[in-house]
Amino acid sequence: MLYGFLGPNGAGKTTTIRMALHLIFPTEGHVEILGEPVFGQGRVPERALRRVGAMIEEPGFWSFLSGRRNLQYFARTSGPRADRSARLGRVDEVLRLVGLEAAAGKKVKAYSQGMRQRLGIALALLGTPELLVLDEPTNGLDPQGMREVRLLLRRLADDGTTVFVSSHLLSEVEAMCDRVGVLARGRLVAEGPPSKLRGRADRLRVSVDDVESARSVIETLPGVGLEVAEGPRGATAVLLLRMNEGASAAEVNAALVSAGVSVSALVPEHETLEDVFLSLVEGSDVPR
C-alpha cells in the first residue's frame, strides 16, 4: 500500500509525521503505529519505531564520513544485537537499491543533493521496515531520479511494505499512490483512492454550429447538464457540459447529429486532482 499525504506548505504534514515518530509531543491525543501506541496509554515508542523507516524533511548525515560509514554507524547506534547486525548486513543492499554503490565510499559532504536524498531513502530502508515514512522523498531529484524513486517505492509497496509519502506535488501523488489523504490547516479534509477523489463530475467540451438546437437537444438528455455556452465565434460555438454518472460522450454526439447539429469537436475534460485539491484546501464545499 502506497499512501500519499498531500497538503500545501504549512498544512501540517511534517508536524504530523514528527508527532507520529515521537519527535515532538502533542498536547493531547493518541498516536498508534502498526498497532503500537506511540503516545497515550501504555506507550512504548521504541517498539513501534524499530519497525519504521523514516526520512523526515531533509536527510541528515555526518558529512565527514562516507555514505557507507554513515549507514553503518546508524545501524550500530542502538537496538538488540540481532537488529544491529541485520542492519549492518543490509548496508550494501540498500546502497545498491538507491543506486549509490559507486559513491558509497565518498564523504557525504561531496554528495549532490540528489545523492543525499537517495542516501536518506537508503537509511530509511536499512531496518527492513514494515512502515516506511518518507517526507517529500523526491525533493531535489532530477526527473530520472524521481522516476527511479517512484518505481522503487511502488516495488516496496507491492512487496508488502506500507509506504507513507508526504508531498505537495499532486502529480507525484496522483501517479503513484493507492490512497490519498489531503491535509489542510492541520485537518484531514479528504481521503480515498485518487480516482475517487478526482473526477466524479467530468466535463465534455462540445463544438457545434448551432447553439440553440444543441441546447434544446441537450436539455432532453438524462445525466447531462449545460454549464456554459460560449459563442458563436465564427461558425462554431462551444458548449461545456457537465457529465454525471452514466452519461457518455458518444450518446451526446449521436443525439446532436441525429437532430441535425454538426459537431466539429468533442473533448472530454476530467476534473484533475489539482482542482479537487485546490477547492478542498481553499475550504470550499467539494464533497467528502
Binding site: H22, V52, P59, F61, S78
Partner: peptide
C-alpha cells in the same frame, strides 16, 4: 544542526541513552 539528531531518535536511540 547536522540534521542527524532526528534520525538517531527515530532509529530509535532513547533520549536518556
Amino acid at each position: 544542526s547536522a540534521g542527524t539528531l532526528r534520525y538517531l531518535l527515530v532509529r530509535p536511540v532513547g533520549r536518556v541513552r
